[in-house]
Amino acid sequence: MSKFKRKGKGGTPAISTASLPDIVFMLLFFFMVTTTMREVDLKVKNTKPNATEIQKLERKSLVSYIYVGAPKDRLATQFGTEPRIQLNDAFAKLTDISQWVETEREARNEAERPLLTISIKADKKVKMGLISDLKQELRKAQALKINYSATPGEIFGGKKK
């Protein structure tokens, strides 16, 4: 008989899962901090075009967004399928833009007002007529810094040369 008796049955002991919640919480906090809740309720279809030569927008606090696109399917009965402009939470007319730019400017610090950038988030199916009108309105409102929002990716469906 062996002198030392084996305790228990051998095999691997169960791994303690007590720290699992901690790990998950860590992940949770990471996501909570890095992601931003979309502050506006999108009312238009918005598939941005692809582009490769894109720059990141610095200083998010200095960026205001204009969404352009056809109304979403659930709103199509009410608003039709023609592309429209969305400012903040509602559809807007072209004539509302200068007023809106003014409001956006007022909301910024006086020193930062010239740095205000308008990001145009337009659906790729939108025709340029509407975008041109929009640009013309922005020029009238003296909001000249703009950014055509795009998703990184190959244009022309990845076909190149």
Binding site: V24, F31, K56, L57, R139, A143, K145, N147, S149, P152
Partner: peptide
């Protein structure tokens, strides 16, 4: 909770082509 945040939030990276419009 984690899955809820994963689903509801969008990693909205703002990227695009910057341009300057000419003044009128």
């Amino acid at each position: 909770l984690l899955i809820f945040f994963l689903v509801t939030t969008t990693m909205d990276v703002d990227k695009g082509i910057s341009r300057k419009l000419p003044p009128i």
